[in-house]
Amino acid sequence: MNTVETTLGPLGADRLGRVNAHEHLIIDGGYTVVKEPDFKLDSVEKAVEEVGYWKAAGGGLIVDTMPFGCGRNVDKLVAISEATGVPILVPSGFQKSSYYLPDHWQHRFDEETIAGLLIAELTEGADRNNYDTPVVDRSAVRAGFVKVAGDYQVVKPTTLKLIRAAGRAHRATGCPILVHTEMGTAGDELLDLLEEAGVPPSRVMLSHLDRNPDVFVHARLAARGALLQYDTPGRIKYQPESVLVRLMRDVIDAGFGANLLLGGDTARRSYWKAYGGGPGLAYILDTFDGRLREEGFTQDELNAIWTENPARWLGLTASTETAPSEERAASA
Rank of each mutant, 00 (worst) to 15 (best):
L61R: 01
Y53D: 10
A57L: 04
P67H: 07
A83H: 11
E50W: 05
G52A: 05
N73D: 15
V63A: 10
Y53A: 12
D75T: 14
A47D: 03
A56K: 15
L41F: 12
R72W: 10
A47E: 00
G58N: 08
R72T: 11
V86N: 10
Y53Q: 14
A83P: 06
K40Q: 14
V51H: 11
G59W: 03
M66R: 13
S43V: 10
A56R: 14
W54R: 10
V90R: 01
V86F: 01
I80L: 07
F68E: 13
W54C: 07
S92F: 01
V74G: 13
G85L: 02
P87D: 03
V90M: 02
F68K: 00
K46E: 05
V51S: 04
P87A: 12
V86I: 15
V44Y: 06
G59D: 07
T65M: 15
V74T: 15
V48Q: 12
G60Y: 09
P67Y: 06
D64C: 08
S43F: 03
W54P: 06
V90K: 04
G85I: 03
G69D: 00
V44M: 06
D64M: 04
V78K: 11
E49S: 06
E49I: 14
V86E: 01
V90N: 04
K55E: 01
F39H: 15
D75L: 14
V78T: 14
A56H: 02
Y53V: 00
K46N: 06
R72P: 09
E45W: 02
T65P: 00
V90F: 01
P91G: 09
M66G: 02
E49Y: 06
V86A: 08
F39P: 00
V51Y: 11
K55D: 04
E82Y: 00
G59H: 07
V51W: 05
S81F: 02
D75N: 13
P87N: 10
D64V: 04
I62D: 06
T84D: 05
W54Q: 04
G52S: 11
V44P: 11
G69R: 03
G58V: 06
K46F: 06
A56C: 07
F68R: 13
A47W: 04
G69V: 07
I88Y: 00
G58D: 01
A79D: 14
V90Q: 00
C70I: 13
V86H: 01
L89K: 03
L77R: 11
V78F: 08
V51A: 04
A79E: 15
A57W: 03
K76A: 13
K46V: 03
A57I: 10
D42K: 09
V86T: 15
P87I: 09
I88Q: 02
G71D: 01
P67L: 08
P67R: 03
A56W: 00
I80M: 09
N73E: 05
L41N: 11
W54G: 10
